[in-house]
């Protein structure tokens, strides 16, 4: 059997005539499929939760879900607004987390790791290495709209601020029933979540670049070199942090929702 060469672009010399889209024999589709499912679950879950507009605050332990933090509208339930309520009441269609949600979402969407994950499993460009992609044309991130992916640096700066807010929320979550210091399972979950978020933010490629990667001579900046080395180490795990923090946000939120809605009670460890 003789076949004709694949994809002969005008004027180009022919490549080997192999028709199959890929000759890979392993289960190359498994990982993009898995990631697509996780991403879809998260998107659906968070959309539902964001528009739910309730069950985001546990007064007893001072737990605030990250999806609603900071809550700065007059619509927020009392106690949940750690930074006052400078904004008026929101109509029902504007979620209470509207202020930071775009930041967090933008941070994740423009994240180098999620870009890879998304391009592979949602955009199929390519689904897996050495598997032909279905698009006839491709220009990558050279033009609108994908050129906006380069705004990741802005999102990184903003997301660092959000991380500080999250840390503040976590500190407040050490709140006892009698008003003093206290510790519950919720506190631990919130702290773990913040730790993962911090890991995710610190291991960001933009962070790695800003702390030291942009230098030409490490030897002249020993301290920044140390930072860079540290961030580089975390950066090696960036993908893991990205996925883990995605799950941990969901878990934290789900836990707080469940406690707040009184489906379960928060297990107190101390006070």
């Amino acid at each position: 059997m003789t076949t004709t060469a694949t994809r002969p672009a005008a004027g180009a010399r022919p490549r080997a005539a192999i028709l199959a889209k890929t000759l890979r024999t392993d289960r190359w589709w498994a990982s993009p499929l898995g990631i697509a499912i996780i991403l879809a679950i998260f998107v659906i879950y968070s959309t539902v939760r964001i528009f739910m507009g309730k069950h985001y605050w546990v007064g007893e332990g001072h737990y605030l879900t990250p999806l609603y933090s900071p809550c700065v509208s007059k619509s927020c339930v009392p106690g949940s607004s750690h930074f006052g309520t400078p904004l008026p009441k929101f109509p029902f269609f504007i979620p209470l987390g509207a202020l930071v949600f775009p930041i967090v979402a933008g941070f994740r969407v423009t994240c180098y790791y999620y870009r890879k994950a998304g391009y592979r499993s949602l955009w199929l460009s390519p689904q897996a290495c050495a598997v032909r992609e279905p698009h006839a044309k491709y220009t990558g991130e050279t033009r609108f709209p994908l050129i906006f992916m380069n705004s990741h640096r802005y999102f990184f700066y903003l997301a660092s601020l959000v991380l500080l807010i999250n840390i503040y929320d976590a500190v407040l979550a050490f709140h006892g029933r009698d008003g003093g210091f206290g510790l519950g399972v919720g506190t631990l979950i919130i702290c773990a979540n913040v730790a993962l978020l911090a890991g995710y933010t610190l291991s960001c490629h933009a962070c790695r670049h800003v702390v030291g990667g942009r230098l030409k001579h490490f030897s002249k900046h020993p301290l920044r070199y140390r930072f860079w080395t540290f961030v580089s180490k975390l950066n090696g795990r960036h993908g893991t942090f990205a996925m883990a923090s995605l799950l941990s946000v969901m878990i934290t939120d789900a836990y707080i929702m469940a406690v707040s809605a009184q489906w379960i009670t928060d297990l107190r460890i101390f006070n």
């Binding site: 180098y112 890879k116 391009y119 460009s125 290495c129 990558g140 991130e141 050279t142």
Partner: peptide
């Protein structure tokens, strides 16, 4: 054409020298 790259990391995956091309 750096902008064409969508950092899908296949280059890093196949590099026999294990150069972290993307990262």
């Amino acid at each position: 054409g750096l902008g064409y790259c969508n950092i899908t990391k296949c280059c890093t995956e196949v590099c026999p020298e294990h150069i972290k091309i993307t990262d």
